[in-house]
């Protein structure tokens, strides 16, 4: 049995998305939440490159992926900065303990 490159890439996309979602579902640590989002975003990027390859517009896919890398970096930096502040102010990174938004 031989795997074609696109099929392999598609499997990787689904795998990354699945790992990311699973991480978000089970983790209570704010840093791990950021990591989970990162993993999901990587899956999304790979999906864009794959879509560009399949539709014959490789440049478009690559350009979109690059854009996402830029945006994604900013999101991560801000999120991690928040995490640092949260840790300093509340002394914990546990989401359950932090969810004071509830009444």
């Amino acid at each position: 049995m031989t795997l074609s490159l696109p099929a392999l890439a598609a499997a990787a996309v689904l795998g990354l998305l699945g790992i990311g979602v699973a991480g978000l579902l089970v983790t209570r640590n704010l840093i791990k939440v950021v990591v989970g989002i990162q993993v999901m975003t990587k899956g999304g990027m790979l999906a864009m490159v794959l879509a560009g390859y399949l539709s014959g517009r490789v440049q478009t896919g690559a350009a979109l992926a690059l854009t996402v890398i830029v945006a994604d970096t900013i999101v991560s930096v801000v999120a991690l900065a928040f995490a640092v502040q949260v840790r300093r102010r509340f002394g914990t990174l546990d989401l359950q303990a932090l969810s004071t938004l509830r009444r």
């Binding site: 579902l25 089970v26 983790t27 359950q96």
Partner: peptide, 17 residues
């Protein structure tokens, strides 16, 4: 309906999925 607003990320992700 207030019980649906847990404020917990994990439950929100469940909702999204």
């Amino acid at each position: 309906l207030r019980i649906t607003q847990t404020g917990l990320l994990n439950w929100n992700v469940v909702g999204i999925v």
